[in-house]
């Protein structure tokens, strides 16, 4: 699903970590550990095609990327946002699929309130609904646990577990450990570039 060959990301012409070679197969959850500034976010953004300064290579099938930013338009309500993200993928999202996704994250009553007026945790839940609606099998999640309350974390672990069982793959950077059994990769930060 995802193969990395001697991948080393660079920022401001400096290599951040030792070259990495990994493969992620369907039904696998990989947790990316590493101290702050070790390049976890940069690696995820490189795999998502946003960051373009790296050495080595990687192949990955169509993916879903969730960065630090919420990726919701604060002027629009959840329904409009999710419809738009569906259109971004070139799909039209049916109403009951929307209803199920929102129910799954317990955000159904908030379906029509503009996202700008929601709390950070609620917006995170709406992005989880977006993951459910996206047809992409490979998920890149950057610190998914941030701003989630206890109940939210339960929902998150439940979603990831069912995604893995359904044959998807998750490649996520996180400090707190996930309930799901995850293979750990640590990035060895390069103190002095060769």
């Amino acid at each position: 699903m995802l193969t990395l060959v001697e991948l080393a990301c660079k920022r401001d012409e400096r290599t951040l970590f030792a070259p990495l070679s990994e493969t992620v197969t369907p039904g696998e959850c990989v947790a990316l550990a590493g101290s702050n500034g070790s390049g976890k976010t940069t690696l995820l953004r490189t795999l998502a095609g946003i960051h373009s300064q790296f050495e080595g290579s990687f192949q990955c099938e169509p993916f879903l990327y969730q960065g630090h930013r919420i990726a919701l338009d604060e002027l629009l309500n959840p329904l409009e946002n999710l419809h738009w993200f569906g259109a971004l993928d070139g799909r039209t999202v049916s109403d009951d699929a929307l209803r199920d996704a929102l129910a799954r994250v317990d955000m159904l009553p908030y379906a029509l309130t503009p996202c700008g007026r929601m709390s950070q945790g609620q917006q995170r839940r709406i992005t989880m609904a977006r993951w459910l609606l996206s047809a992409r099998k490979l998920w890149f999640l950057d610190e998914p646990l941030t701003a989630l309350d206890r109940q939210g974390q339960v929902v998150l672990n439940d979603i990831i577990a069912s995604h893995i069982d359904a044959g998807g793959a998750v490649f996520c950077a996180t400090h707190a450990s996930l309930d799901v059994a995850a293979r750990e990769i640590t990035l060895a930060p390069l103190t002095e570039a060769p």
């Binding site: 998502a48 095609g49 946003i50 993916f63 879903l64 990327y65 960065g67 630090h68 930013r69 919420i70 990726a71 919701l72 338009d73 604060e74 993200f85 971004l88 993928d89």
Partner: peptide
């Protein structure tokens, strides 16, 4: 708000 990231890497 991060929507631009999704446009560049998602669409």
């Amino acid at each position: 708000n991060g929507v631009l990231e999704q446009v560049v890497c998602g669409a």
